[in-house]
Amino acid sequence: MKFAAKKLTNLIITVILVSFLTFCAFQVIGDPVARMLGAEATPEKVAQLREELGFNRPVMTRYLEWAGNFLRGDMGISYSYKLPVSDMVIPKLGVTVALTLMAFVMTCVLSITIGLYQVRLKSPAVDRAMTVVNQIVMSIPPFFIGILLTCLFGLVFHLFTPGYYVSFRESPAGFFGYLFFPALSIAIPKISQSVKMLRSRTGEELEKDYIRTAFSRGMNTGAAVNYHALHNAIIPVISFLAVSLAEMLASCIIIEQIFSIPGIGRLMLSSISSRDFTVVLAIVVILVLWVIIVNFIADMIYPLIDPRIKVNR
């Protein structure tokens, strides 16, 4: 429990620090006043608007105010759309989270199944073939996988219509159906990485002394893999999967672009190009929170699966 408490304090400190830094960065660079006024900007008008928006107060007070509002769900007003940022961000956040979680579930299920299949294979030829295929798949970046899947399943097999996003409200089934291939494009590179990891780790474990001990007790290779090597090999794979949840969010930004999914990544990119910094700030802080929380969860999982990590350190 001490372990969790310590990690939790760390987590809170990191969140405060990172959100403060992000806030400062956007305050220094992202001064929107001149842009909002456009051509008719006179020094008086700029000063007046700055006063109105409260840009003249110290950064610390503004940060505290912003953080307080943020916790209450008020993320400010978008410069471009004059809408509350929370109204813009939260529905899209749902879409992105759904996409990421779908990709994550696919990754976990498929990488463990395929990985176990390959590790337990009896035939070296099939094993070799799988390694080669895996090596090729691993080299395809997620965005190209997205394009390939669009081409294959969208244009050739007509399993979905590229570009025609179905919202959850319209049809939940259609929503998840549309997200299936985007999620798969995010999942595939991770799957091949973790399958490879499981395969090579198991191979390494099989060379170790404790496997020789198991053999000296009359165990055969298959049993030694199942009973000893796999347990040891799967620990790093599980922590890799947990951490990859953070990276999947980054892949989402790109994949949403390809499949035209109105998620948080698309909103972020369009807000970046229109220099709508309240929106970007809100999204960045949400993404940062996500990453920090995911890493926290990964840290908490570790002692559960590896008895060597001392919990009360």
Binding site: R212, T213, S216, H228, H231
Partner: peptide, 24 residues
């Protein structure tokens, strides 16, 4: 051989720590 290993025949190795599965 496997039928003999662990029944009529047993082995003790040099490094006890590495000879045991670390997470079992």
């Amino acid at each position: 051989i496997r039928n003999l290993q662990g029944t009529s025949l047993a082995v003790v190795f040099q490094e006890p720590l590495s000879a045991l599965d670390p997470i079992m």
